[in-house]
Amino acid sequence: MNDFPDGHLVEQAKKGNIDAFTELARRYQERIYQTILWLTRNNLDADDLAQETFMHAFKCIKDFKQRSGFYTWIYRIAVNLTLNFLKKRNREKNKKEALLENFNIEKNPEKANLSPEKQSLRKELRKMLSEAVDSLPLHYRASFILVVFQGLTHYQASQVLRCSENTVSWRMHKARKMLQVKLLPYLEGDGK
């Protein structure tokens, strides 16, 4: 299964092959989880929503026309589910409770080589940057996370978010302007 391309696995999954679908999930699970985690800021919610994303995808895979890549399609499901979840529960208010430092997150490989002082500064910086991203309006945040953290192009992000490339470009610009205002003292200084 590991060597098959996405297209073949999708075809198999459409026929009800659970192993083929699980392989697809294995390939994209990490990126989906991280994207959801960036949006929800809560590991448990991210885990639940990632599971729900793949469950939903398996249920609907027969309707997947393969006009876009599987990853774009699965991203779209994940982002839509997460945005709905956030709107419904208004989780943004409680997001500070469970930040990134918990169970299954692997330690940053760089961290081991840093001195305690630098680790502390790094932690503070991460917190500041995370909070600044969290403060962005939901759709701006989604665009920013997909482009900056997940490395999607504007076109791919527009496919996921079902908007035009121009909208993604505009949201990125506005998000950067907002972040610049929040992080100006840090950006002006050394920051390290």
Binding site: Q34, N104, N108, L129
Partner: peptide, 9 residues
Amino acid sequence: MKGLEKQGV
């Protein structure tokens, strides 16, 4: 920001 993303599962 890209530096923040290095965390994995």
